[in-house]
Amino acid sequence: MPHDHADHDSPNGHPHTLLPSDPALRVKALETILTQKGLIEPAALDEIIETYETKIGPRNGARVVAKAWLDPAFMAALRADATAVVSELGYYGRQGEHMIAVENTDTVHNMVVCTLCSCYPWPLLGIPPTWYKSDAYRARAVREPRKVLAEFGVVLPDGMAVRVWDSTAETRYLVIPQRPVGTEGLDEAALMDLITRDSMIGTGLAVTP
């Protein structure tokens, strides 16, 4: 059987040790060398950053959830093929190629983690918050989700089971939080304001107005 070649156990050490130790200088060094070699364009980096700062974020997911709350046919389509439904809204893309919507009910609360790295549905929720990528969340969410939820201020009734989704493949999960009571007359835009990023990861609930 072949052995893994990705380990850098030569006496010269891992290549990262050749770079400056300060992380900002480290990034700058890689950007500089790659730019000099004609392999990256700094303006493209600006464009990527701006895209995730201003265009692709949790408002996308909130729009999907609001539509699901308002329209049973939309929710049914989302259950059948979430990727197709979000693609029609323009939310297909990198790290959201295989979407699955999971619905919170009176008896099940869903919560998403990636214990092995930090997989996250970028086209719908953007770049994950720091805590989602932390060792503490990755380690604990699967073993003690209720303690984790309590740290977010969420306490579930005893009759509600927790289902934690560990994103080990390229499937990405969007939690559809329960619609708060007293929101019957609200339109899509007003509902979107109640749908937080954390409620779509499952570490929060939708805001009750």
Partner: peptide, 21 residues
């Protein structure tokens, strides 16, 4: 491969409108 590991301490939630980077 850290799922289930003990000892990592509390999780620090972040504001919904915090910086992306």
């Amino acid at each position: 491969d850290m799922g289930g590991r003990f000892g990592d301490g509390p999780i620090v939630p972040e504001a919904e409108d915090g910086a992306v980077f």
